[in-house]
């Protein structure tokens, strides 16, 4: 299929075209940029929800239940589940679909599994662009499930409007709750497996952490108890998600965040393209190899060499 055909097929709701475009993005195919640029004006409509938390805290089950609840509310849903790729072989076992089988035959739900492919931070490099394509495809809600996270995989905050951090009873003491990192990015906390002992204590610990947060804005993250296996607490969770979106719209935060994100994205993209351009020019040239050799032998230093190479590049670029 040509680029135009693929764009057209995505916009007219062909799910195989959507799947194919996500693959092109994942494979860093040169066609992907052109497709994304054609789709861009059709994006920005979906509510993007990030779900993150430690492995085994019930993320996939919560996502499945949330999806069922959104479907009851007549919303269409796209889901991206990220699982780790092996740092040794690059292979991956993507198993989040196992919990999501009830939605497989629902045409209004689209599920895609992704390996991290060497990217740290809880997502893959392709995730944000994949979200964009699903957005253009027309899903109302896009849920991004990160890999099982530890303490500092906070990439999801860059692409989600609403971040849900999941935890379970009995996972560490109250000091864990005041550590920096993942505990700071939540718009909504979910304490799942509420039937296990210690659930109320966990809620208290998170609330105590929020009580002493000096940066608390107008939105205080609610803490919701769920049992994702039975579905308990899920309607309340979805209520809060919708409330959070209303909050973002009413306070103007949505617009503000949108601007910040566009700036961040433009800068990232320029950095990436510039670096790629620069390296394509340099790599393999005798001058470049010689410079590396000199740095290794301590004849030259990398700080000076980097500056000189960049300056040369910019001067040539001007001509």
């Amino acid at each position: 299929m040509s680029i135009d055909d693929l764009v057209e097929a995505v916009l007219s709701g062909k799910r195989r075209a959507l799947a194919r475009v996500i693959t092109l993005i994942e494979n860093e195919d040169p066609k992907a940029d052109k497709i994304l640029s054609a789709l861009y004006k059709h994006t920005g409509k979906a509510h993007v929800i990030g779900v993150t938390g430690p492995p085994g805290s019930g993320k996939s089950t919560i996502v499945t239940r949330m999806t069922a609840e959104f479907r009851r509310r007549s919303k269409t849903v796209g889901i991206i589940c990220v699982d780790p790729s092996s740092p040794f072989t690059g292979g991956a076992l993507l198993g989040d679909r196992i919990r999501m089988q009830e939605h497989t035959l629902d045409r209004e739900v689209f599920v895609r599994s992704m390996g991290t492919r060497g990217h740290l931070g809880g997502l893959s490099r392709a995730t944000s662009d994949a979200v964009r394509v699903i957005d253009a495809f027309g899903k109302d809600i896009i849920i991004v499930e990160t890999v099982g996270t530890g303490q500092s995989e906070v990439d999801v905050v860059e692409l989600a409007h609403t971040v849900i951090v999941t935890d379970v009873p009995g996972s560490g003491d109250d000091i864990q709750a005041i550590k920096a990192g993942i505990m700071e990015i939540a718009d909504i906390f979910v304490v799942n497996k509420k039937d296990l002992p210690g659930a109320d204590k966990k809620v208290t610990e998170i609330n105590a952490m929020l009580d002493i947060d000096p940066n608390m804005g107008m939105w205080r993250p609610p803490v919701i108890l769920t049992n994702a296996n039975t579905g308990e607490g899920i309607p309340e969770l979805v209520d809060k998600i919708e409330e959070h979106m209303r909050f973002l719209v009413e306070t103007g935060l949505l617009k503000k965040k949108g601007l910040e994100r566009s700036k961040e994205e433009l800068e990232q993209l320029m950095k990436y393209k510039l670096t790629r351009e620069l390296l394509m020019k340099l790599q393999g040239t005798p001058e470049y190899e010689e410079a590396i050799q000199k740095i290794a032998e301590r004849i030259a230093d990398p700080y000076t060499v980097a500056e000189r190479l960049i300056l040369d590049f910019l001067v040539k670029f001007r001509e």
Partner: peptide, 22 residues
């Protein structure tokens, strides 16, 4: 990259998963 979908899948579910996962 291996996608495992679990037990007791109908042919319809298998084909739909295969399409979505490309």
């Amino acid at each position: 990259e291996v996608i495992y979908t679990g037990l007791r899948q109908t042919p319809e579910m298998i084909v739909e998963s295969a399409l979505q996962e490309d």
